[in-house]
Write a protein that binds this DNA or RNA. Sequence first.
RNA 1: GCCCCCGUAGCUCAAUGGACAGAGCAGCAGCCUUCUAAGCUGUUGGUUGUGGGUUCGAAUCCCGCCGGGGGCGCCA
Length: 623
Amino acid sequence: MGIIGATFFATVFILGEETMFEVEQQAVEAKIRSFFAENDIPQVELKWTAIPFSGEWGISTSFFAAAAAEAKAGKSRGVPVPLRAQEIAEAAQKSLEGLPGFSRGEAVKGYLNLYFSTAQVTQRVVESVLAAGSRFGAGNPRQERVMVEFSQPNTHHSFHIGHYRNTILGESLARIVQFAGFETIRASYPGDLGLGVITVLWAYEKFYKGQEPQEIHARGQWLLKIYAEATNLLTAKENETPAEKAQREAYDAERREMYRKWDAGDPYIRQLWQETREWSLEELRDILRMMDVQIDEWFFESEVDEPSKRIVEELIARGIAEDERPAGPVIVKIDEKLGLTKEKYRTAVILRSDGTTLYLTKDLALAREKFEKFQVDRSVYVVDNRQSLHFMQAFKILELWGFKQAEKCHHLAYGFVSLPEGAMSARRGRVALFKEVYDEAIARVLAVIAEKNPNMPQEERLGVAQKIGMGALAYSFLSVDNNKDMVFDVNDALSFDGRTGPYLQNAVVRANSILRKAEAEGAAGEAFTGFGDDLTPHEIALIEQMSRFPAAVQQAAEEYRPLLLASYAYELGNAFHSFYHAVPVLQAENPSLKAARLQLVRAARVVLTNALWLLGVAAPETM
RNA sequence: GCCCCCGUAGCUCAAUGGACAGAGCAGCAGCCUUCUAAGCUGUUGGUUGUGGGUUCGAAUCCCGCCGGGGGCGCCA
C-alpha cells in the first residue's frame, strides 16, 4: 500500500472517524447485532475497550450486560450470568470468523477479544498520523461555540502559583476543547475593583507615589508588598493603644473616602487607578506570554459594574428578586423559588443595600454578555472550588431568568494550592510568586544542561531551559486531578525525573536525534515499503498507544479533564522510551526494516508533540 | 445545622460499573566503546478510612458513620 492507501485512510479519518477504529468496531458490532437477533439475545449496548495486559493489540467487549438482560427477561434457564456471558462470547466469536482486519479472536471469562492483523493496522495508523501531522487526533468541527473563562487574577496584586494552576488548567482545557473540534474563545476576567484594589491605591498614593520600580515584574511584586503593608496598617491589633487605634481608624476613613471618590468617578483617583492597574496588567500579559497563552477576550469587573445594576432592576421587575432596600439588600430566594425544603442554593444577595454591586451581580452581567454578544453555547468557568456555591447560585439565577444556556454553564472547580508551610498569605509575605518559580526553574534546567549536555551552544541554552522548566511545571500541575487540593513543593514541581514534563520532552528529543542522524547519513530518503507482521512487542505497544490518541482527546474534552491527556502522554512517552531502548532503528538489520522504523519514529514524534501541545508543553529540538 | 470537595502502597497521585487496583518518587538489584542514562530492566510495598446496601460484578453507585479541607444575606 503506497500513496493511494495513505490518501484513502487519511480521507476516511478526516471525514468521519474520530477514534481510529470506529470502522472496524462498527463492522464487528453490526455482525454481533445480527448474531444477537438470530439467537434472541437482548440488544444491549456494547462497550469497546483495548485488550488489557495482553501485550497484543486489538479490541474487546464483554457480554455480561447481555446475559444479565436475558436473566431479567426470564430466559436464563438458570445459567449464572458469568457462565452465560462466556457462552455468548464463544458463540459470537464463531459468528465472526474471517472478519477482515483481524488475525484471530478469543472468548475468555465473558469477554470477546479480537486481535488486529498487525501489519495492516499498523500501516493504517502510521499513515494516518503522518498524513494528518499536527492535526492528528483533532476532532471533526462541531457546531457549538465554547467560551473558557480562566486567569482571573486581581490587579494590584502579583501573580502567584495559585493563579498559575488556574491559568495552566484553563489554557490546557481551551486547547483540548478547540482541538476536539469546538470553536473556542479564551476569556480572562481580571478583578480590577473592590476594597483590595482601593487599599493598594490608598497606600501607594499616601506613602509611595513615584517610587515604583521600572521593571515589569519587580513593579508588579512591589504592588503586592504595598498591599501587605497597607493591610497591616488597617488591621486591628491586640493590645493596641488608643493612639494606634485612632491612627488606624483615620487611615480607614481615608481609604473609604478614596473608594467613594473612585465610585463617583473622581478624575484624579480614576487616573491613579488606571495607571497602577496597567502595571498589573503589564505583568499579567508578560506572564501569559511566558506561558504561551493568548486571551481572545478581556472582561474587566469595572466594565460590567454598571450593566449589572440594570439587571438587578430587571430581576426585581420580573419578581425573581426581592428589593429590601433601604433596610436590606436585593436578594433572590433561590431555594424558595425552586420549592426546595432543604437549603441548597440558599438566598443570594445580588445588590448591597447602598446600591453597589457584588461579585455575583457582575457575574450575571458577564454571563449575559457571553450569551448575547458572543453567542456561546457552552460556558466553562475555571475558578477554585471555594466558589462552588457562588456558581451554583449564579447558574440557577440565570436559569430563573430564562437563559437556556444556563444548563451548559460549567464551573470547573479546582482545589486550592498551598505551600508546605501552610496557606499562602500575602500579608505574611508567604507567597510563591510565579516569576520566582519561573526563575528558579530556568536556573535548575541550566544547571542540568551544564552537567548533562555541556556541548550545547550557549546561545541555545536559555530557550531550551524555558521550554523544559515550563514543561516541568505545567505537567506537574496537570497530572493532578483538578478537584484535588495541592501542596506546592518546588522540588516536586521542578523534578525532571520519572513521570514529568522533561521525561516526555526527552522522548521527542530522542526521536529528533534519530531522525537528524538518519537525515545526515542520507537514510531518510530510503524507500519505505511497509510494515511486516513480525513487529516486536515494543513496536506494537507504541503504535497501539498512538492509535488511542484521538479517543483520548475526545474524552478529555467531554469531561473537561486535562489530566486524562497528562496520563495518556505519559503512557505514550513511556512506550517510546521502551521502544527506543529495545529496538534499534539506525542499526536495524536491513534497509526496509530501518525505513519502516524511521516512519514509526516520525509518527511517534508527531503524536507526542500533539499531546504535549494540549498540555501547554513545548518540546525543544535538543536538551 | 445545611451544602460542596477529598480519604487508594512509606510519600505524591492514577484507575468513576467490568478481567490480576496501576504509575512516579523513595528503597533494593542490574544496564552507558552501540540512535541523548532527563533513560531502560527487574524487585519490595494495598483487607481502596469504616459499616451496611444495590448489582452477575463496586475503589467507582446509594445510605450511615469516622477523619481532613472549603463554603453558607450585603468579601471576591
